[in-house]
Amino acid sequence: MDEDTRLMLLVREGSERAFRQLFQKHAPRIAAYAWRFFRNRAQAEEAAQEVFLRLWRARSSYQPKAAFTTWLYTIASRVCLKEARRNRPTPPEELVPEATPGPEEKLAGNDRLAKVQAALEKLPTQQRAALHLVRVEGLSYQEAAAALGLSLPAVKSAIFRATQALRRLEEE
């Protein structure tokens, strides 16, 4: 049993301490995932908070059948997809790279990152979300499909198309 699952089982029993640990570990990642949908910090933070409130409310129904992260990203995907459908997109905020190397590399890297983000922006929401879950969070196609409520072939196709779009960027 991994550490997250162990903590979540404690949360199921009502442990706020375990809940705090899970929040501190995963909330920034969930906010980064929500950022993929909204490109707006306030909305991403709001969504991340909502995800953890839902996790708390649903604690008694948690079953450690699948990985904790799959369960967490299932909740996150529902919250974000619902919110993305409900709200009009807000103007994207300035891009902030997660890891920044040296000054020169930073300039080149930021430029490249900006191009990648611009290309990702053009993708449909689900393709973007699937790509993030697989490539950034390291979920398998099967886990990403479960989190997004899609079939395995649908996720495979979404990832393929999104990668092709980035490949075109590389060929330019």
């Binding site: 980064a32 891009l95 902030v96 490539r135 999104a162 990668t163 980035l166 960027l169």
Partner: peptide, 15 residues
């Protein structure tokens, strides 16, 4: 290369 590109991602600095 495209897969490597897709791993680049930005993230918000949380308030």
């Amino acid at each position: 290369k495209a897969v490597e590109l897709s791993r680049m991602h930005d993230a918000p600095v949380l308030s």
